[in-house]
Amino acid sequence: MSKLKINGKEKDFSHKIPSCLSELLELLEVDGATVVAEIDGEIIERSKFETTKLQEGQSIELIRFVGGG
């Protein structure tokens, strides 16, 4: 069991989950400079992406700006 819930979908990491948010973003090929994250409902500042450790089963939201009115 090496699972995280990312943007509402369960994702299975075959060996072990990424250690921190930065590693997760790298793995997903998402540019961290434009993203804001929430872990289990708590906002994580971008400056803390590297120091925020991940734990199995957490629910992570990755959010960014899009066009809107």
């Binding site: 993203v35 959010i63 960014r64 700006f65 066009g67 009115g69």
Partner: peptide, 15 residues
């Protein structure tokens, strides 16, 4: 601008 989830399967350019 609006805020939305990053589409993990279809990562578009950052607007």
């Amino acid at each position: 601008v609006a805020l939305r989830r990053v589409d993990i399967d279809n990562k578009n350019d950052d607007m």
